[in-house]
């Protein structure tokens, strides 16, 4: 077996991610990598987005999970095509996984590709996937410290979503602190609060994504 250093692995990943991005751009596809903590609402938000956009765009959603096809099945109900990747022991998707899918697909068929990464606030920061934008999703149930404790993904994301705001009254989470933390870590990041349950601000998120 060829053993590579962590740095080499990341460099290879980056080159492949560039290739993927070029390929997606050449096919006029808008692409998004959705990362975030376990259970923050990545799939729930993608369900809402698919529900609103499936008429307008041909959507492909790639779902990363350790095991099962639960998320892909949920999203498929909203007329998006899905591909499930089961990563087994790996805690994030990498560009190689995505490249294996992209090179076997007739990309002309699609307008938008969403990738739901494995639920994890740490691992995905080591592997970019070659999408236009990265969106990091946390929810207020994780506590107001979740952003300041996990700065890496916020540093490299374009949009930060704070989800489950329908529960705000019950939980009394300090939303202002969460927003400030995200902005402190990455002044260029757009911060938006949503509820995938009530649909609150989902339209605005779609707008922010440029869709």
């Amino acid at each position: 077996m060829v053993v590579q250093t962590k740095k080499q692995v990341q460099q290879d990943n980056e080159l492949l991610a560039q290739k993927i991005h070029q390929n997606l751009i050449d096919n006029n596809i808008k692409s998004f990598d959705i990362v975030g903590a376990i259970g923050a609402g990545k799939t729930a938000i993608l369900e809402k987005i698919a529900e609103k956009l499936a008429q307008k765009y041909k959507i492909l959603v790639i779902c990363g999970d350790i095991t099962t096809r639960v998320d892909a099945n949920r999203i498929e109900q909203y007329n998006a095509e899905t591909i499930q990747i089961n990563t087994g022991r790996e805690c994030a998707l990498n560009a190689y996984h995505i490249h294996q899918i992209i090179k076997n697909k007739d990309l002309e068929k699609y307008d938008v590709v969403f990738i739901e990464n494995v639920g994890n606030l740490i691992c995905p920061s080591e592997f970019i996937l070659g999408t236009d934008k990265r969106i990091v999703i946390v929810s207020i149930t994780e506590g107001e410290w979740v952003i300041e404790k996990h700065p890496m993904l916020f540093k490299m994301s374009d949009i930060a979503v704070i989800n489950k705001i329908d529960l705000l009254e019950r939980l009394g989470t300090n939303l202002g602190k969460m927003t400030n933390d995200a902005k402190k870590i990455n002044p260029n990041i757009d911060v938006i609060t949503t509820s995938a349950k009530t649909g609150d601000n989902i339209e605005k998120l779609i707008e922010l994504m440029g869709l």
């Binding site: 087994g88 790996e90 996984h97």
Partner: peptide, 8 residues
């Protein structure tokens, strides 16, 4: 076997 990676 032990948790391989599957791309469907």
């Amino acid at each position: 076997g032990d948790y391989p990676t599957f791309i469907e």
